[in-house]
Each structure stands twice: as structure tokens, then as C-alpha cells.
Amino acid sequence: MGNSSSMLTQYDIEEVQEHCNHTSGNSVTVPKCASLFIFQRLLRMLDGLNFKEFVAFLSAFSPRATLQQKVEFIFKVYDSDGNGKVTFSDMLEVLRDLSGQFISEQQREQVLTHVLEEAGYTKNSLLGLSDFMKVLCSFISNKFLSM
């Protein structure tokens, strides 16, 4: 899969086993992708991974994965250029992929702006992992509190 050597060290094997221990039945099932665009984004994330990295990638889909592992994975989906920061544009692109033609571009921007503002950020904010987590937590708590 990647350009790295395919030889696994004992440490690599133990790390792969650790990832597998977080999965039920030592296998990982990948949920159906809601969107072809998201599926393509996930495939791009796989490009260049060695086996150990591939297992780590799949472990985020496990029901035994921690919330932190899942949030880190989601962050990587949004951080398409891998620079460790998520921009308004990055989030808008994923929202566009998820919503398709169901809502207009203007509606997407309004929703995203509102979500960011609720968490104390603006359209110009560069979100690191902790900032991204704060936005997610704010969105989730506001969503469930308003029900």
C-alpha cells in the first residue's frame, strides 16, 4: 500500500495487535459510506499507508474505539491537507460532500458560521484538534439540549 518496507518489526506486530484488541472479534467493519464523496475522501486518506497505519486507520470504526480516537479520525477527515488545522473552507467542503444538493451553499455557510460562533470561533479561525473538539462538543450539546 505504501512506499514503506512491508517487513513488520515485533513492535509493529504488537501495535497492530493492540489496535485489533479494540475491535470486536479481531476484525473491523467499515460502515456503509453515506456519500460517494466521503468515500473518496477516505480512500485518499489510505493512500501511502503501510499495514500498521492501515490497521490504525480502520480501528477508528470499531465500537471499542475511544471517543478521542474517533474525534482524531474525524479531524483527519476534515483536515484534508494534513497541516494540523481545519479551516472554514475545509469544514464547508465536508459539509458540501455530506449534504449534496439538499441544502444551498448559502444555507451551508450560515449553518457552519452559526455552529462556529456558538463555540466561540469565527469563519477565520484555524482549528487545531482541541479547538475542533470544542466545536463538536458545542454542536452536540446544543443539538441535544434543543430537542
Results as ranks from 00 to 15, higher is better:
Asp47Ile: 09
Arg44Ala: 14
Phe88Gln: 07
Asn50Met: 03
Gly128Arg: 05
Pro31Trp: 04
Asp97Trp: 11
Phe75Gln: 00
Gln110Ser: 11
Asp47Met: 09
Ala34Cys: 05
Tyr78Cys: 08
Gln68Cys: 05
Val28Pro: 01
Glu118Asp: 09
Lys76Ala: 08
Phe102Arg: 12
Arg44Tyr: 09
Leu8Trp: 01
Arg108Asp: 00
Thr29Ala: 12
Gly120Gln: 06
Thr87Leu: 11
Pro31Val: 03
Asp79Asn: 14
Leu98Gly: 01
Ile13Asp: 04
His19Ile: 03
Lys143Met: 14
Leu67Val: 14
Ala65Pro: 00
Ile38Arg: 05
Val77Met: 07
Phe37Val: 06
Ile74Gln: 07
Leu36Ala: 15
Glu117Asn: 14
Glu53Pro: 02
Asn26Val: 06
Leu67Glu: 10
Asp97Ala: 15
Gln106Glu: 14
Gln17Thr: 13
Gly84Gln: 05
Asn124Arg: 11
Glu14Lys: 12
Lys123Arg: 15
Phe51Arg: 01
Phe139Gln: 11
Asp131Met: 02
Lys52Leu: 00
Glu15Lys: 13
Val115Ser: 12
Leu116Ser: 03
Cys20Leu: 15
Cys20Tyr: 12
Val30Gly: 06
Ser27Asp: 03
Leu127Lys: 01
Ser89Asn: 15
Met7Gln: 14
Arg64Phe: 07
Gly100Lys: 04
Asn3Gln: 11
Ile103Ser: 11
Gly128His: 09
Glu15Asn: 09
Gly2Asp: 04
Gly128Ile: 02
Met91Glu: 05
Asp79Gly: 01
Asp131His: 08
